[in-house]
Amino acid sequence: MEKTFWNIYKTFFKVGTLLLGGGYVILPLLQSELVEKKNWVNHDELCEYYALGQSVPGIIAANMSIFVGYKLLRQKGAFAAATGIITPAFLAIVLIAKILQELIKYQFIKSIFWGVGVGVVILVILAVKEMWKKSIVDKFSFAIFISAFILSAFLKVSPAIIIIASAIAGIIYKLRLDKQKGDNQC
């Protein structure tokens, strides 16, 4: 399949439609669509975009799509991939949001929501677990984790402030470590 704007849009629209229950499942979907079916990128490139997608702020599935889109067709490809991955999500929510007030009147819908509400807690805990594996690597990162948790859960500090402060703390800590290493060598 040729790498045109319209083909890229369609491909990501399809991936966006199949994406359920959290962005972490985008990797196998892109693997099947882009590597196996279309041969647009190879597996290693995809894994690199997955890792990079997590070091950029925002929604990982969207970040990864924009990376791949850019690689396929520069600016045009990035735009096609971004809009493609968003469209199904947008349409689904706008449709459901309109009828949700009607739906929620039915007892069996309420019961399903009650159950899904409990299931979602598990999904968030699993997301915490995934992030934990990639982020808590030493005492310093554990200290940041605990501080961020307390500041957010109990003191209701703005998440943006916590994120900026921890990035600055990371830079100061790492640079001091490097400096100490440098001093020891002398």
Partner: peptide
């Protein structure tokens, strides 16, 4: 270094 600092913060927020 910035990513090293903000990843555990993201985990704490979540």
């Amino acid at each position: 270094a910035a990513i090293y600092g903000l990843k555990p913060a993201g985990c704490g927020l979540l």
